[in-house]
């Protein structure tokens, strides 16, 4: 048996009052009648397509509801209260084309609209903070740190950060555009205009379908990137404990050495962390092996680069290297 209900992604924020009203009317024309609303999805009941009028009441809406008395007055005026819309508005509808408009003096809506605008300003500010903290974590505004960050993070992680930044910017642009539109409507209403009807919002409907449901994954990704301590973004943390670093030893490289030592030091230069290998014969003919970490500001980078260096050192031809070093030593001695 087919379900009599269907769910659809809500392509608007509750500040898009005219567009939501029009969307619900469009759905009714397709035989889908608004029943209730979640965070990202609205539930519709299937029925015979018909022309309906939907309005959003955003005055005196407390805890997703309006006073019983107001509901009664709506019913007396030919309107039915259907349910809340994202906790901000109450959806009412009628199939009576002659039912009086719920707002006959729109000038009074300036104040409730102002509180909706304030709420969306806060949302926008939160998104901007998320973007700024993400950029700061990538090294901005310090160009040196950005170069280092971009150079050292693994490619899949870099792609993920890029996607996160793109989505955050998209969310900000989308919500800022909605806010600007709402402010313009509030201004017009303050000057005596009515709430516009018949606004299709086709483009914003398409964009909203994608961006609005992504709000939570974006927030989770942002939190993981910025707040979790053990991630690649920590690669800029200055290193003080060198013990965890993979200092290459003669054994690692499969070489024979009489002595070996290691050291590490850092600087603030933009140069990448490097591992220097010093392999030399001492005066008494012993083979000495020494590794050094130079310009090491970042533990993550140091590990990556030193591991790479070890791999490359393993490829060296030990015999020819030793012969060359022996010859150089003998020349210097003579």
């Amino acid at each position: 048996m087919m379900s009599k209900f269907v769910k659809r992604v809500i392509p608007f924020e509750s500040c898009d009052i005219p567009a939501i009203q029009n969307w619900l009317e469009d759905m009714a024309e397709k035989g889908l009648f608004f029943k209730e609303c979640g965070v990202f999805f609205a539930k519709f009941e299937k029925g015979e397509p018909k022309d309906m009028r939907y309005r959003l009441d955003f005055c005196d809406v407390v805890a997703c509801d309006i006073p019983e008395e107001k509901k009664e007055l709506y019913e007396r005026s030919g309107w039915n209260v259907v349910g809340d819309f994202k906790n901000d508005c109450v959806v009412i509808c009628t199939d009576d084309p002659d039912a009086p408009e719920i707002y006959t003096d729109c000038e009074l809506l300036a104040k409730p609209l102002k509180s909706i605008i304030s709420k969306y300003r806060i949302y926008l500010a939160v998104l901007c903070v998320m973007l700024l903290t993400t950029l700061a974590h990538c090294g901005l505004p310090n160009a040196v740190r950005v170069i280092r960050f971009l150079g050292y993070i693994p490619k899949p992680f870099f792609a993920a950060v890029l996607i996160l930044l793109t989505l955050l910017i998209g969310e900000i642009i989308f919500r800022a555009a909605r806010l600007i539109k709402l402010k313009a409507m509030a201004r017009r209403i303050k000057n005596g205009a009515d709430i516009p009807n018949g606004e299709k919002g086709g483009f914003s409907r398409a964009v909203g379908k994608v961006l609005i449901p992504l709000a939570i994954p974006i927030t989770v990704a942002w939190a993981a990137f910025v707040l979790l301590p053990d991630n690649a973004a920590d690669s800029d943390a200055e290193i003080t404990d060198f013990s965890a670093l993979p200092f290459p030893t003669c054994e690692d490289l499969g070489w024979k050495c009489d002595e070996q030592s290691s050291s590490a030091y850092g600087s603030d230069s933009v140069d990448s962390t490097i591992v220097n290998k010093r392999y030399f014969l001492s005066q008494n003919g012993d083979v000495n092996f020494r590794t050094e970490y130079v310009d090491m500001n970042s533990e993550h980078a140091a590990k990556l680069l030193s591991e790479d260096k070890i791999e490359r050192l393993k490829q060296y031809d030990e015999a020819s290297y030793n012969t060359a070093m022996q010859r150089r030593y003998e020349l210097e001695r003579d």
Partner: peptide, 14 residues
């Protein structure tokens, strides 16, 4: 004088 339900309660609140 028409006073829509939404307007009436907005006015009372104000």
């Amino acid at each position: 004088v028409k006073l829509g339900p939404g307007t009436l309660y907005a006015l009372l609140s104000e």
